[in-house]
Amino acid sequence: MLYQPPTDRARRAPLIRGYLPTDRASVYEVCRRTAAAGADATGHYRDPDLMGDIFAGPYLQLEPELAFVLDDGTQAVGYVLGTSDTARFAAAFRRAWLPRVAHRHPAPDGRPSGPDEEMAALLHLPERMVVPGLEEYPAHLHIDLLPAYQRSGYGRALLLTFLGAARRSGARQVHLGMLTENTAARSFYDRLGFHEIAVPDAGPLTYLGRSTETDD
């Protein structure tokens, strides 16, 4: 599904609301169009749903109460989603999510070859989310917006919405992992009070954390 801007009749100020099952396709589209270090990953993978099945679908299925979308009047153009308990989520991912999608993205036989197998390897290892050194930050999140809605305050509003929901779910601190090369995202998180967490052998990722408490 390609994003279609709202017509004049439908145009209104975007609003943040809870995720609905009818949002799934547009959430997957946003995920795909921001999955290349913030740029469009359309055409990078044989299955266009691969990135969504790793980084969006499991949250929508397992913890929909912590999923929120930015609705432009016709569809979701951004989202924030996550979990209040990463260890619990990783276990549920293996038990209840992986069997739903594993047949579409088989685990590589041996060392991953090419981008599709590299991402499929991540899908088949949900335990990778439980990172030593992050025990004090049990919640984690993913946030993405289409380019036209970035740098307009919507990202901040989405993130604060998630923080409040995570805190009500019992999480006092939250973390996220981001590609170190995505300097624009790092600036965004710095402005919102995230700080870097020292994690051994983090590879291409930087881990950031903060309290779920907000001033709002």
Results as ranks from 00 to 15, higher is better:
residue 1 M to I: 12
residue 3 Y to E: 09
residue 7 T to Y: 03
residue 8 D to I: 13
residue 9 R to Q: 14
residue 10 A to G: 02
residue 10 A to R: 15
residue 16 I to A: 09
residue 20 L to K: 10
residue 20 L to D: 10
residue 24 R to A: 13
residue 24 R to N: 04
residue 25 A to R: 11
residue 27 V to I: 11
residue 27 V to M: 03
residue 28 Y to H: 14
residue 29 E to M: 15
residue 33 R to P: 02
residue 33 R to A: 11
residue 36 A to H: 13
residue 38 G to M: 08
residue 39 A to Q: 13
residue 41 A to F: 06
residue 42 T to P: 02
residue 43 G to H: 01
residue 43 G to V: 00
residue 44 H to L: 14
residue 45 Y to L: 09
residue 45 Y to P: 01
residue 46 R to T: 13
residue 47 D to M: 01
residue 49 D to C: 12
residue 51 M to H: 01
residue 55 F to C: 09
residue 55 F to V: 09
residue 56 A to P: 03
residue 58 P to W: 05
residue 61 Q to T: 14
residue 63 E to F: 04
residue 64 P to F: 05
residue 69 V to D: 02
residue 69 V to T: 01
residue 70 L to M: 07
residue 70 L to W: 04
residue 71 D to I: 05
residue 72 D to Q: 06
residue 73 G to C: 07
residue 75 Q to K: 03
residue 76 A to Q: 01
residue 77 V to K: 00
residue 77 V to Q: 01
residue 77 V to Y: 01
residue 81 L to M: 14
residue 81 L to F: 08
residue 81 L to H: 03
residue 82 G to K: 02
residue 82 G to D: 03
residue 84 S to W: 10
residue 90 A to T: 04
residue 91 A to C: 05
residue 95 R to N: 07
residue 98 L to F: 05
residue 99 P to D: 10
residue 102 A to R: 11
residue 102 A to L: 04
residue 104 R to E: 12
residue 110 G to K: 04
residue 111 R to P: 10
residue 116 D to F: 07
residue 119 M to I: 12
residue 120 A to R: 11
residue 123 L to R: 07
residue 124 H to W: 02
residue 125 L to R: 14
residue 128 R to Y: 08
residue 129 M to W: 12
residue 131 V to P: 02
residue 131 V to M: 06
residue 133 G to Q: 00
residue 133 G to L: 03
residue 135 E to P: 02
residue 141 L to Y: 10
residue 141 L to C: 11
residue 143 I to M: 14
residue 144 D to G: 04
residue 147 P to K: 11
residue 147 P to N: 12
residue 149 Y to G: 08
residue 154 Y to M: 07
residue 158 L to G: 06
residue 159 L to M: 13
residue 160 L to D: 11
residue 161 T to M: 07
residue 161 T to S: 07
residue 163 L to Y: 00
residue 171 A to N: 03
residue 173 Q to N: 15
residue 174 V to H: 04
residue 175 H to F: 11
residue 175 H to V: 05
residue 176 L to W: 05
residue 178 M to C: 13
residue 182 N to T: 07
residue 187 S to Y: 12
residue 190 D to F: 00
residue 193 G to E: 06
residue 193 G to Y: 06
residue 197 I to A: 09
residue 201 D to R: 12
residue 202 A to Y: 01
residue 202 A to K: 02
residue 205 L to I: 06
residue 212 T to G: 00
residue 216 D to H: 14
residue 216 D to G: 15
residue 216 D to V: 15
